[in-house]
């Protein structure tokens, strides 16, 4: 019974990790850039959502799409201002650029929200805990989990069923090949940044609803998703979600059966073991190396 409860908690938190991971994977897949600014981006969008609800007074269901639109805009802006000028430069330089962007976003957030913890007004997510016998399922997490699954399905359909998705996959394969095929890869990059920021914003809103938002602490929550995406493979969409779930479950099991103290590092130890056996993550694409 306890086991089931830990499993439920793990799956539900894992969904949240998967959602953050999805945002990182989308960008990595198409641009090969690891986005260190993911935490700052998701916090920013979530803070905008809170501001729309509390300061402007919009209902949550209206504030949500507006803040997601803002997220898309912010992603576009980041790509255009920060990364476009560095096109075709060494990958590490681009990663460094995301670090610089993170600093800019952090400062901008401080201008508007200072260092206080900002919380959503209570009950923006309607409903209450569902009890299934002795097992309880918190509704806030359930929403997050449903949204994560929906995001995963939508992004999957987008990638594998649409023309644009096909272009994105070609770009992921090789930038040169994509350009030779007449694909406008700068547009693909902009697209993937927008998509990733929107997914991140959703994660940020759920986290904010849970823990409140603070400009220095909330971004670091994104690092919780790191073992998840390495676990699944940096360039695999399915891997992000499955990795998220695995890490979530591992964490709760470790906290439940061993000691909460080891919960945070258990994913990393498992991660090291996985990497030793499968260096490209569980679902990552195996690259055949040539000289």
């Amino acid at each position: 019974m306890l086991f089931l409860q830990y499993l439920v908690a793990g799956v539900l938190t894992g969904g949240l990790y998967g959602l953050i991971g999805l945002g990182i994977v989308i960008i990595y897949k198409s641009t090969k850039v690891f986005n260190f600014a993911v935490g700052a981006l998701m916090t920013f969008c979530a803070l905008v959502c809170v501001a729309l609800v509390t300061n402007v007074g919009l209902p949550f269901w209206l504030a949500l799409p507006i803040s997601l639109a803002f997220a898309a805009f912010l992603g576009l802006l980041t790509e255009r201002v920060g990364l476009r000028p560095l096109l075709a430069q060494p990958i590490l330089t681009l990663i460094m650029a995301t670090l610089a962007i993170e600093s800019i976003l952090y400062g901008t957030m401080l201008l508007f929200w200072e260092g206080y913890t900002i919380s959503f007004p209570q009950g923006v997510l309607p409903g209450q805990t569902i009890f299934l016998g002795p097992i309880f399922i918190p509704h806030e997490f359930l929403y997050a989990f449903i949204v994560a699954t929906a995001c995963f399905v939508l992004v999957g359909v987008f990638f594998f069923k649409t023309q644009m998705g096909l272009r994105m996959r070609v770009t992921a394969e090789s930038h040169v090949v994509a350009m030779a095929l007449g694909i406008n890869i700068t547009r693909i990059f902009a697209m993937s940044w927008m998509l990733a920021t929107v997914v991140g914003a959703l994660a940020g809103i759920f986290i904010g609803n849970r823990l409140g938002l603070q400009v220095a602490i909330t971004p670091s929550l994104a690092f919780k998703a790191l073992p998840a995406i390495i676990f699944g493979g940096l360039d695999s969409l399915a891997g992000a979600i499955i990795g998220g779930l695995t890490v979530g479950i591992l964490e709760k099991m470790a906290a439940g059966y061993i000691d909460p103290k080891v919960a945070e590092i258990t994913p990393y130890i498992i991660l090291l073991l996985v990497l030793l056996i499968r260096p490209q993550g569980l679902f990552g694409e195996e690259r055949i190396e040539r000289i």
């Binding site: 409860q5 908690a9 823990l211 670091s220 709760k252 103290k261 919960a263 945070e264």
Partner: peptide, 17 residues
């Protein structure tokens, strides 16, 4: 006595115990 991390979003195991 149970501990939890600053970045933990869910405390189910600790609270269950």
């Amino acid at each position: 006595t149970q501990l939890f991390g600053i970045r933990d979003v869910d405390l189910t195991p600790q609270l269950m115990k």
